[in-house]
Design a protein around this nucleic acid. Sequence first.
DNA 1: CGTTTATTTAACCGATTGGTTGACGATTGA
DNA 2: TCAATCGTCAACCAATCGGTTAAATAAACG
Lengths: 110, 110
Amino acid sequence: METRLDLVFAALSDPTRRAILTMLLEDDMAVTDVAEPFEMSLAAISKHLTILSRAGLIAQEKRGRVKWCKLDPGALREASVWMQGFGQFEPVNLDAFERFLEEELRDDSI
Amino acid sequence: METRLDLVFAALSDPTRRAILTMLLEDDMAVTDVAEPFEMSLAAISKHLTILSRAGLIAQEKRGRVKWCKLDPGALREASVWMQGFGQFEPVNLDAFERFLEEELRDDSI
DNA sequence: CGTTTATTTAACCGATTGGTTGACGATTGA
DNA sequence: TCAATCGTCAACCAATCGGTTAAATAAACG
């Protein structure tokens, strides 16, 4: 049986999908706009979005012919709680988060 | 380029590996003892441990013919920080963590 | 209406994953 | 010394993954 946690961590293990989540932090986006910065086909991005959606990390809503993608951090909380158990981590450190985002965006060359 | 974050999330996406980490929360263990509760070969567990090790989630030290595995939550912190950015999560909630562990151990039928 | 735009689906590909078995090297202890 | 134990390695397998291209569906536009 594939648990929610399996799906969430598997979804997060791909840098393209993490970059997509980071983009969606800024704003909701249509599929085509999500795909624009990446050097891969729209079909590939569509698959990534399906994976993020099944993991519960994003929600997709179709309005007209456009499908809007929005972040849905609920599933992340589960995974976060799981991880928190493994160390006495400092309270949320947003500065460190910003540094990671910058690094990710640089590395992924998007 | 495969980043640390890729490796950590990929490592966490497998329920067997998460169960191993949970076991190592209790105590350091030899490879054979890690393998004992699982219905799979020692070689398979050895592979899982290699994956956890490469991700930086555990450290392995060989003493004599016994290889000891211990939790190394450093890499988890990185991933945790990354995730924390996506929601205003409550501060560390260890009760919730305990519930997750129970559920995981039940579901994985180890 | 016909065309363009938005997105998914299907078929395919090579690489990776998670497991197996069997052989192997290294260490231990009688 | 010799057998047992600890753990990895190599070869193999089916299933999944991340990507492609081409066709299909659906909505909007002129």
